[in-house]
Design a protein around this nucleic acid. Structure first.
Lengths: 360, 360
DNA sequence: TTGAAAGCGCTAACAA
DNA sequence: TTGTTAGCGCTTTCAA
């Protein structure tokens, strides 16, 4: 590709005050303030037993020299880095478009900040990312990892295990084959219970033929759980009321069309995500069905930007995603301190609630 | 908030093979394979002058022990980490809903991977994030930083400067007051040239009264540049044909309404982002204007998911965002090697092109 | 081709 | 309250 060089540009960043090529070290600060390295270290780490005047002097020199501790050196002795990795598998694309991840991340960041830890995001996208990320996680860059949206049989959990890196999963991990869960901590929304709430609501509305647009239940636990919740309520639902889609809007629209073709008499549908539900609503409108009069619709996720802007607004299952993020970080940090101390009870399922809007 | 403890949970992650509490070190590998630390180091770093049999033996032990080099220790002597920070302001509003950032990141990650570097994402959100991120960047965790969507007068550039951290900006940085650019490298789309293309296209279509919905030109360089491009072509455009909005869909819709009220006779509009353009199209439809017959519309960004799904599809200015990301990483890595070597010519403006669809 | 030794910048006993 | 010392795990001269 052709590029134009901007005319006004000059040399790259140079040290502001031309002098040092080397970053100042603890030793530099010590010398300049006439105390020992230990004392400077104490000041920098906020230890109490230092004379106030000394503290002040050292602080002056620190900011004068622009000293920032070398975390590598520090980590070498403390075995702590103050950083936590948030690793998101495959979908850099779907991820950023998703307010879900956004809220999750906000919750995580907030809780980590309370512990003075920095969240660093890593993406697993192309195949060779695995090796790099593994080296990164194993290289002592971080004190722990929060792992997301892993595919079934993903080798990351096992890797983290080998590395002895404290790990919490977002969503109950789907392991390969008969592999047992190694007692990994996870945080998950109550997908099954939420789905039950949704379907029970439709039943309470008096609906007789309640269909469902399920997510990719062979690939994601959340989808499988939501479908299970549907069946919990509708024990003998015929198979032709269930249609699988892929958690996309278009997928939801297509699945709805299939359902209508198969069962023109359906009078309600539980759609396993708001995004799919928005697609389903479109199909219903195109087919001339009134919502909720002819067909009642309930979604899942409560992505407000979607649920409030559909026509009619979407009744859906709410998850407190920010709280889920916060809990993940909490679990990790707790673990971090009380390593090997708390046997059992490390995972959390966050309850859902139904938000009634116009569609059901 | 109330949480339910999952019944099936057990103890947290424990080292798979119960044995070592400590991660294996170079020394462990050396001992186990009967060579010196130096030799192991050479093997691990792929240096040539090692006997093949020794290489093999060491490799065996490495994988047997699951050895991963401690990057902290390595960094201490090499001053390199193999990681690059991508720092962005988190505000969900623009960034995350935007495939823009997504593509950018993809380009960055790809190029970084070519150099064997790991991209780590940091977000700036709440005020105290600055201190943490600064410590992180200054702490030697990364070899360089890619900085995004900074507000005018942001102190991050200055901080990076002080830290002597190689830095490349995404978008021409808007500095506070009369502050001169410190010769920071940046990569930007040709906002001004792109806007010219858009407006010239409308002129070529024979439109007489071409309005513009501008972005927040007092806050973002991109918006200011796009507005400048509009004025480049329409030297004497009356002020009432220009309306500022905030880069949101709703903002675009509102601005369009204002323009129509003020100038019912307008026959074309250049909208400074696709998102705003989708809002503008809605307003035009509500006001009964046909597009493009009554009013021709051109957007900016070529966010395909938007531009192809509007009615009619949006004619817009395309930016090669992935390439921009790639270039940023490239600039950084080049700089990283040739420090202080290349005075001048470090920034790049990536050309745009008009993509014709139905709206103009 | 390999090993021994020094040292990167920091913290953590231990002494003073 | 402060300084001295050792050493974290690694790379890198320098010798062998």
């Amino acid at each position: 590709m052709q590029v134009q060089l901007a005319p006004t540009e000059m040399a790259l960043t140079q040290r502001s005050h031309g002098s040092q090529l080397r970053r100042p070290t603890l030793e530099d600060v010590a010398r300049r303030s006439g105390v020992s390295k230990s004392t400077v270290s104490r000041v920098v780490n906020g230890e109490p037993r230092v004379r106030p005047e000394v503290v002040e002097r050292v602080r002056e020199v620190v900011s004068e020299l622009g000293y920032v501790p070398n975390q590598g050196a520090r980590q070498l002795v403390t075995h702590r880095t103050g950083a936590v990795a948030v690793v998101a598998a495959h979908p850099a694309d779907r991820l950023f478009l998703d307010p879900f991840f956004d809220c999750l991340l906000r919750g995580i960041r907030r809780e980590l900040a309370r512990h003075g830890a920095q969240a660093v995001l890593l993406f697993l996208d192309e195949p060779d990312d695995y090796a790099r990320v593994a080296d990164y996680l194993g290289g002592g860059h971080v004190d722990g990892a929060l792992l997301f949206s892993l595919r079934p049989g993903d080798r990351l959990p096992e890797m983290a295990d080998r590395l002895g890196l404290p790990t919490v999963f977002g969503g109950r991990p789907l392991l390969r084959d008969g592999d047992t869960v190694h007692g990994h901590a996870y945080v998950d929304g109550d997908n099954r219970g939420g789905a039950r709430q949704a379907v029970q609501h439709l039943v309470a509305l008096g609906r007789q033929r309640i269909a469902t647009v399920a997510g990719p239940y062979d690939q994601e636990n959340s989808a499988a759980d939501r479908l299970a919740g549907y069946h919990d309520v509708l024990l003998d639902a015929p198979a032709d009321l269930v249609e699988k889609a892929d958690y996309t809007r278009q997928g939801g629209a297509d699945a709805m069309a299939v359902l209508l073709d198969r069962r023109p008499d359906l009078d309600a549908v539980f759609v396993a995500s708001d995004l799919m539900a928005s697609g389903a609503l479109q199909t219903l409108r195109e087919r001339g069905r009134r919502v909720p009069e002819d067909v009642a619709v309930v979604g899942f996720d409560d992505i407000v930007s979607i649920a409030e802007s559909t026509d009619p607004p979407l009744t859906t299952v709410h998850q407190d995603v920010t709280e889920m993020g916060r809990l993940m970080a909490h679990l990790l940090m707790r673990d971090d301190g009380a390593r090997d101390a708390t046997p059992g009870g490390s995972s959390v399922v966050v309850p859902t609630r139904l938000v009634r809007r116009g569609s059901a």
